[in-house]
C-alpha cells in the first residue's frame, strides 16, 4: 500500500524524520501499536497508535542526488503521520 508522509512541522518531540516528510513510500509491515511519543514525551496520557515500517526509494527521497535510485530507506512512521494514496 502506498502512503505519503504528512508534510507538517509541528513543534515538540516528533519521531517522524524531517527528510521523509512529504515523501511517498510503501508499507513494509505493521509492527503493532505503541504509546504516541508526541504525548508520552510530555507525560500526557498517550494514545496507542499503530506503527508502520515504510519503505522509500532513494530516488523519491533525494531525487537526482540519490547514489542509486533503487536503493531504499525504511523507517518506522506512526499511522497518524501517513495518508493513504489511491492506487493509480
Amino acid at each position: 500500500m502506498k502512503v505519503r508522509v504528512l508534510s507538517q512541522w509541528p513543534p515538540g518531540h516528533v519521531r517522524t524524520p524531517g527528510y521523509l516528510r512529504g515523501k511517498v513510500g510503501t508499507i513494509e509491515r505493521s509492527v503493532g501499536t505503541f504509546n504516541n511519543p508526541e504525548q508520552n514525551a510530555y507525560r500526557l496520557t498517550p494514545t496507542k497508535n499503530r506503527l508502520l515500517r515504510v519503505r522509500f526509494r532513494m530516488s523519491e527521497v533525494w531525487g537526482p542526488r540519490a547514489e542509486n535510485p533503487d536503493d531504499v530507506v525504511e523507517a518506522e512512521i506512526y499511522e497518524h503521520w501517513l495518508e493513504p494514496l489511491n492506487a493509480s
Binding site: 524524520p17 509492527v31 518506522e76 512512521i77
Partner: peptide
C-alpha cells in the same frame, strides 16, 4: 555493485 540493493533502516521509533 549497483545490482545489489542497499536498504538503510532508520530506527526512528520503537523497534
Amino acid at each position: 555493485n549497483q545490482k545489489i540493493q542497499i536498504r538503510v533502516h532508520d530506527s526512528t521509533a520503537d523497534m
